[in-house]
């Protein structure tokens, strides 16, 4: 847990420096082309942008520790509630996409491994690879036209229909973006499950189980699966961590108000406090997810112990 803090400081310091090195002045961008020089200078002063870099960073860090995330320069609102909302939206998408990826990827991987070199194995692995190799925004647009227009059964953008906020409506809106997002994750999970399963079923204890006359089904589900899933957990954890950061391309294509889009808009508008806050949130969640993965790991593999 303690390693969390240097990583978070490193991440925020890095984004701070990168953003400061970037040309473009948040005050100018915010006021637009029609603002005067004096107005821009005035705003720079109000925002503290005329202070030395380290002072700015230090001040930001102190405010964060005090629980003050500040106001967004561009969006003129409190950062924390805004970001939590966006983060929540990305979390819905992550949850849905991960469930989808696991429920396709894990069974496909197991079946492929059990029937290694069969036609089914080949076809499944080629299919997941095709999904993996498809540029994601392109797939998104095609799905929109197909399901939104040709079949006319799914909404093509946003998070909810106007005036509705119920779960059913939310889920319907999540289908296309998660489908687009999962092609990559499904492939990785399926391949990892397959190779890890292949390794496990060659182990001695599986041979023993088989020789005891247990059915193949029982050998796989009782004995092999749990061990085979250990590396899969890592991969799923990495995907969860990645998806919690929001996939910008999918969020743009589907106008999905996730945190990735908020961050890109923030970067383009040089909205330093917003980007810093967003990165802090995303990086913390990434580190936390990794921690959870380690715990799940320990549960699945009794050989691993953590002090």
């Amino acid at each position: 847990m303690l390693s969390l803090i240097p990583v978070l400081i490193g991440v925020t310091l890095l984004v701070f420096l990168v953003m400061q090195l970037a040309p473009g002045d948040p005050a100018q961008i915010m006021l637009g082309p029609k603002a005067t020089e004096t107005a821009v200078a005035q705003l720079r002063h109000e925002l503290g942008l005329d202070q030395p870099l380290l002072v700015q960073y230090g001040r930001w860090l102190i405010h964060i520790v005090q629980g003050n995330w500040g106001r967004s320069i561009q969006l003129k609102r409190e950062i924390l509630p805004f970001l939590l909302g966006r983060f929540g939206n990305s979390a819905y998408l992550m949850l849905f996409a991960t469930l989808l990826a696991c429920s396709v990827g894990v069974p496909a991987g197991i079946l492929s491994a059990v029937k290694q070199y069969s036609v089914g194995d080949r076809v499944a692995m080629v299919l997941v690879l095709i999904g993996f190799s498809t540029p994601i925004f392109w797939l998104g647009i095609i799905l929109q036209i197909l399901f939104g227009l040709v079949f006319g059964i799914l909404p093509v953008s946003g998070l909810q229909s106007p005036g509705r906020a119920d779960l059913g409506d939310l889920i319907v809106h999540l289908i296309l973006p998660s489908l687009t997002l999962t092609t990559g994750a499904t492939a990785i999970i399926a391949r990892m499950t397959r190779s890890s399963m292949l390794e496990v079923i060659r182990q001695d204890y599986i041979r023993t189980a088989r020789s005891k006359g247990l059915s193949e089904r029982s050998v796989i589900s009782r004995h092999a699966l749990k061990n085979a899933l250990i590396p899969v957990v890592t991969v799923v954890g990495m995907q969860v961590g990645y998806l919690l950061g929001g996939d910008v391309l999918v969020e743009i294509v589907f106008s999905y108000p996730g945190i990735g889009l908020a961050m890109v808009n923030g970067i383009l508008a040089r909205d330093f406090p917003l980007v810093q806050g967003a990165i802090l949130l995303v990086a913390s969640s990434y580190v936390l997810v990794n921690l959870v993965v380690d715990i799940v790991y320990a549960y699945l593999d009794p050989r691993i112990h953590y002090e």
Partner: peptide, 19 residues
């Protein structure tokens, strides 16, 4: 390396290109 990994990949790329 952890710092780089904790950064959402495409965003890091965008930030770098932006600068």
């Amino acid at each position: 390396i952890d710092v780089l990994m904790a950064f959402p990949a495409i965003l890091l790329a965008i930030a770098i290109v932006a600068s």
